[in-house]
Design a protein around this nucleic acid. Sequence first.
DNA 1: AAGTGGTCTAGACCACCAT
DNA 2: TGGTGGTCTAGACCACTTA
Lengths: 261, 261
Amino acid sequence: MPAKNKLSLKPPSGAEALPLYRQVKRELQNIMEAGHYGPGKPLPSEASLARDLQVSIGTLRHAVDELVHEHVLVRRQGKGTFVAPHNRARFMFQFFHVEPRWDPEDDTPKEPEFPDIQCMAFSRDKADEAEARALRIRRGDTVLRIENRLALHGRVVMHDRLALSGAMFRNLTEKRFSERPSTIYALFQTDYGITVLRAQERARAVAAGKAVARVLSLPAGAPVMEVHRLALTFGDRPVEYRVSTINTQAHDYVSMLSKAP
Amino acid sequence: MPAKNKLSLKPPSGAEALPLYRQVKRELQNIMEAGHYGPGKPLPSEASLARDLQVSIGTLRHAVDELVHEHVLVRRQGKGTFVAPHNRARFMFQFFHVEPRWDPEDDTPKEPEFPDIQCMAFSRDKADEAEARALRIRRGDTVLRIENRLALHGRVVMHDRLALSGAMFRNLTEKRFSERPSTIYALFQTDYGITVLRAQERARAVAAGKAVARVLSLPAGAPVMEVHRLALTFGDRPVEYRVSTINTQAHDYVSMLSKAP
DNA sequence: AAGTGGTCTAGACCACCAT
DNA sequence: TGGTGGTCTAGACCACTTA
């Protein structure tokens, strides 16, 4: 982990027009991608980074600002700037979108609740067509398949089916997975140096299959929401493909169109 | 529309800690909320705003930066800064989330398509309980109810049921609604000075009712997605309550968890 | 040519956190 | 006390638009 990275930013190549703060941003991303600056320890200070990269403090802050907006970095006044850790708070606001339905009569502000996650199955298999395409591996490559059920207030409301590239997560065992500190993405981050940055979700309504219906305590054929998620890391490289099935009898899939002021 | 607004920002009140750029931001919001700076004409230049508000250009830009990130303002180099207009592009990326499903074999990049919107019903009625609570009006107050069907590639994939406060949208007629220039939110903005800034959506899977099923060319009872949207303007005041029903046989409800770099 | 936003600099001072 | 990020300033120069 080099504390200093004297880099020739100024003459990047032939036909360039990228503003300096974008070059700095990319440089920071490259360093993070290379695995330095794990979520525990702070990056070098803004002053020293600016010195090393030969840019003004304002330009460096501009680059960091963008990464903070994208939830890649977090700043802590007096302590430093860190790779954004995958703690429960981040999971709840960025990656978990199921909330109990509004009770019309009641005005109690619904507290977002962290789900109770139970592993139902863990296997090592060959990638099928859909998994291979999503994870950008070859069909037949090894994938880890994980099946979870998620409960809120003691009721199972969601069923997850995860697929991970076996090559990316070597030595991942069911034991290690079950003993994860908090969220699955935290395990990716701390044990494999892979930070999930964003995800795309595609949702649809389907009739529940027999197996999933049983898990969700619904009659087979009941309408449920099926959410296909592809989680991405630096360079939009896929990390995880996940199909979630949600019992929306008493819960909603919530999404905010544009952030709050 | 005052071009100058000498304002005493510095001594805001007793127990304050709001940074200066936040005060500037609120001031800009207040002015926009008051109806000045319609989407056609630019705001005063950054230099003149900074002069009038007695802050440095950097501080003023910091405030504008935040409003741009929230899609409240847009900058156009060489032209000026504008209240973000509700054109088709904005509708597609911020308020329309239905996309054709990936064809596994085909690699053609799916072009987002603007839907063909047809009005099926337009009525003036008394607000029911749900509408009143959502729009923060009293039960029995006048609401405008609008029913639309939306088609992509000639196939109806979505049914909308809108409720608007009658007091907020006086003189809105079916004719005027049908002759709207582009999107419904553009009409709110240009004709009523009300700019929708964000929205919350709550989605669930339900069995299609008979009437909606017919519109969507589905058998009654088929699983469909029902999306409840509350659109908000400045101060999070509700503007529109909308229930959309989506045929997800060949389309998905798409959402991105964190924006792209 | 004049006016707009876009980038970049080089400081100053403050608020917070560790020791 | 020293180091961190947070705020604010006062410029300079560039890129784009319009007339």
